[in-house]
Design a protein around this nucleic acid. Sequence first.
DNA 1: GGTTTGTCATAATGTCATCTTATCGCTGTA
DNA 2: TACAGCGATAAGATGACATTATGACAAACC
Lengths: 326, 326
Amino acid sequence: MTNLTLKQLRYFEALARHNHFGRAADACAISQPAISVQIRELEETLGTELFERGPRQVRLTNFGEEFALRVRDILRSVDELADLARSSRDRLVGRLRIGVIPTIAPYLLPTIIGNLSSMHDGLDIHVRETQTQKLIQELADGRLDAAIVALPVSEPSLTEIVLFAENFVLVRPGEDEGKPVPNREMLREMRLLLLEEGHCFRDQALSFCNMHSARPRELLDGSSLSTLVQMVSAGIGVTLIPEMAVPVETRSASVSIARFRSPQPSRTIGMVWRKTSPIAKQLLRISEVVRQSADALRAQHNPTPIAHLLNLTVSAPAITKSTLPQ
Amino acid sequence: MTNLTLKQLRYFEALARHNHFGRAADACAISQPAISVQIRELEETLGTELFERGPRQVRLTNFGEEFALRVRDILRSVDELADLARSSRDRLVGRLRIGVIPTIAPYLLPTIIGNLSSMHDGLDIHVRETQTQKLIQELADGRLDAAIVALPVSEPSLTEIVLFAENFVLVRPGEDEGKPVPNREMLREMRLLLLEEGHCFRDQALSFCNMHSARPRELLDGSSLSTLVQMVSAGIGVTLIPEMAVPVETRSASVSIARFRSPQPSRTIGMVWRKTSPIAKQLLRISEVVRQSADALRAQHNPTPIAHLLNLTVSAPAITKSTLPQ
DNA sequence: GGTTTGTCATAATGTCATCTTATCGCTGTA
DNA sequence: TACAGCGATAAGATGACATTATGACAAACC
């Protein structure tokens, strides 16, 4: 009692079509005994005769007719499987789940999603916005396909690719416009507003000041860059924000923006995915799109484009300050 | 580049369910390398990865998810095939195409169809009413499953089974009621109305009179027994009809019915089907139903039931005549 | 009426696919 | 660092399936 095989069903279909063992065998590019044996085994497996073998002709039985209808359906479905695979071999298809940290998401995502959607039309993009730690966990769990975070992540199971570097700028109350830019030491004396625990950007900012998260609340916690900027605007303190956030966050706040002297604080933004991800190639291509989107975005607000390589020491000739019109 | 196999799809489904090669292999009652190899080959065939193999877990890719949905559909359909076969192994199912000669059909069919339908509820019965020659041809061509005809057919490729024997009775104008029953010789002198060429009953009647179809139209041709009886009723001649037709055909005609003295003319009605028919067993059972239906039908109109065996010489004690009320 | 032809079934044998056992290599963990 | 879990790989054994050759049988043809 062997099992049903697709081969048997294919032979059956051919025989049902030709009503002739020899011609069906030709159609299947096999010899006549091969099909003969396979049909017999199929019938034995089923426990029913599918064909009525007359001396002059072969004919489907009633049951065979019914069987043939279903078999044709099945074979079509199976062939569609292969088609489906072929069509999605190179094209990225289906759901793409991408995670982004909150200090990037609002500024980069609209552009990225627009570009990706227009380039891969069958793609539906799910975005998850949360802190690095959770993103990495979800990535590892397979609940995300990729994440855009600050590097390095240093997970050996993940591929990291650099997208760009972005500087941090100082956000002060509007009336501080023109005042000398504080250095790190001075910054430590000021009331520095930062994101709450868990945000990588908080750690990056603290790191710039040579402070560590152990140092408790001399500083206030804000839940978003937007909140921080609003608090600065209200004169509560100062904060750092990534360059990319400037256009959006300072639009409706009376604050002044100042760049630090070299070495400017900065972080590297990159994209990560599981090394085992089967869409690694496509993700690499996507990372290109993201990088270009980011470049375009920053060029749009920054007449002097900033090199985006990590190990770059810019000796900024002067302070570039900009207080954007609200 | 091997072909897709049901086995591969089954293994795939198991792995998709368990996300674990070892457990999936257990579920399939095979070793782990077997499933490992088959999945790899499936992926090679498709040209796409179905699973993402992490160090700690195995997970479906996006495409794998889509694939799994379709595969489950396919596997279910395939399993249904086997179920279908099992359920129709003994039960007669689907279409039953049965042919009946015109001198039987109107009298027997209503009962037969009723009985068969109620016994096999999935059965849809197609009836073809035409002359023996065509029935046999259609049977041989596979356009019919069985036929009810007068025996013998003497086709070596067909199985014949006797259903019953039926006598012929003489139909005379109503005013002949009570007149002596003619014998064969006398019959030849009378104006004998018969069915047109091609009906077996015509030949059987002629044969009884020791006439052969070569003998031309001393006699008129009617296209149905009903027509013949109506013509008799109009005084045009006499005719023979099978006993079974009496109740129906003499209902609305003023004719008298007379039985012949022994040896009574008779014919054997039987059922035939291709020896190669896969439903031979079921047809045999059906023939039983037909026989019982016929017996019941004749008993209903004939208080003295007539033995239905072929080689039977009945010395009819008297003439049983019946002119039924219209 | 024997012979030929067409057709499917069966037998013998070879080949390839596929399974099993044994083992490796990697990864995460005690 | 050693160990345990898990999947991949290798080698040998087994089984499925193909091919060629041949048989059986009925139809068709001298």
